[in-house]
């Protein structure tokens, strides 16, 4: 082997590494594009404008929840109560909107209180995990049961409809464009602004090496609580999207979404151990889950095998993403 080839090889690998370092969501993006192409190959209609808008409006809630999860994962924590927080905010805003008459004022008022409620749930988690130093995975599992209990108290049976104004806006159009595009644009702006704050860098520093962060003088406990608060905030936003898509309250709706949100974070290329995360990746990870579910159907998988194939496909995507990510960090 001549020195020149070694050089080109290493510079090539270095280039890939550089790219992945700057854009850690690249593998996830490639996977999403591939899944879109596959969906399109099996069912051309699924790439239509209408279908893609539908995909986005249905999975926007999971996207938000995955982003919520990303911020706590950044600091090396986890939140198994994100789905329960979503359920609680969902039933709370639906009940409040109904109580206040369902007008524009009621919708805005309920949403403000919903954000506040999400923040409170997040801060409770933060205090339990960071200040009281309980293991995040068990402590947030416990708070998830607690939040579900409160949600069942607020609304004992699924069913209260959300005001038409709310869900017609979410599912409708504004200036000729589907409203969900504006939600996506607003989310992108919010993520951009957040990425420039010191908090996100601090969360990553804590996740990378908590001891080192502490020794450099960072208020680790406070930072982790703030991470959970951010998670609560985005869980509340997720609840708004879910309410917009389902037009009703359901005290148990988010329960199944929690683990999907964790899966989306990992599929997106973040490391669960913390210190290396990408919110854009999590967004793509949530879409990956949605696209895999659709693909399993469009491929014509027999119904008795659908669960099996779906699990296998997610596992496969996970492996592909993790291998690419590991290479970049190696």
């Amino acid at each position: 082997m001549t020195p020149t080839t070694t050089e080109t090889l290493s510079s090539h690998a270095g280039g890939l590494k550089l790219w992945l370092e700057r854009y850690p969501f690249l593998p996830a993006l490639i996977i999403v594009v591939a899944l879109l192409a596959l969906n399109g190959a099996f069912s051309p209609n699924s790439l239509g404008y209408r279908s893609l808008t539908g995909l986005l409006s249905t999975y926007m809630a999971l996207i938000m929840l995955a982003i919520a999860q990303t911020y706590v994962v950044s600091a090396g924590d986890i939140d198994l109560s994100a789905g329960a927080t979503l359920s609680l905010v969902n039933v709370a805003i639906v009940v409040l909107m109904e109580k206040w008459g369902g007008g524009a004022g009621a919708v805005v008022g309920a949403m403000l209180l919903g954000v506040l409620l999400g923040l409170v749930c997040g801060v409770i988690n933060g205090i339990v995990v960071a200040a009281l130093r309980l293991q995040a995975i068990v402590a947030t599992f416990a708070t998830s049961i607690f939040f579900t209990g409160v949600a069942l108290y607020v609304m004992p049976v699924a069913g209260t409809p959300a005001p038409a104004l709310f869900w017609r806006t979410y599912g409708g159009r504004l200036l000729g464009l589907p409203f969900v595009f504006y939600v996506l644009a607003a989310l992108a702006l919010l993520l951009f602004l957040l990425s420039r704050t010191r908090l996100v860098t601090q969360l990553l520093a804590v996740g990378d090496d908590q001891q080192a962060a502490y020794q450099t003088g960072l208020p680790v406990v406070l930072i982790r609580i703030k991470g959970y608060a951010l998670c609560g905030l985005f869980s509340a936003l997720a609840a708004f999207c879910l309410t917009g898509d389902t037009a009703s309250g359901d005290p148990l709706v988010g329960g199944k979404m929690t683990l999907y949100s964790v899966a989306a974070v990992v599929l997106g290329g973040s490391a669960l151990a913390g210190g290396w995360t990408t919110v854009v990746g999590s967004l793509l990870g949530a879409l990956t889950i949605g696209l895999v579910n659709s693909l399993v159907f469009f491929m014509g998988t027999p119904s008795e095998w659908q669960n099996f194939v779906q699990g296998l496909a997610i596992l496969f995507v996970l492996m592909a993403g993790v291998l690419a990510g590991r290479r970049a960090r190696a």
Binding site: N45, D245, M257
Partner: peptide, 24 residues
């Protein structure tokens, strides 16, 4: 008939319906 049968959450089943609409 085309069947979608899996353990899904509510948004997942809404996606079932969307897939059927896309399939025509």
């Amino acid at each position: 008939v085309s069947v979608q049968s899996a353990n899904v959450d509510v948004p997942g089943q809404i996606a079932h319906v969307r897939n059927f609409i896309a399939e025509g």
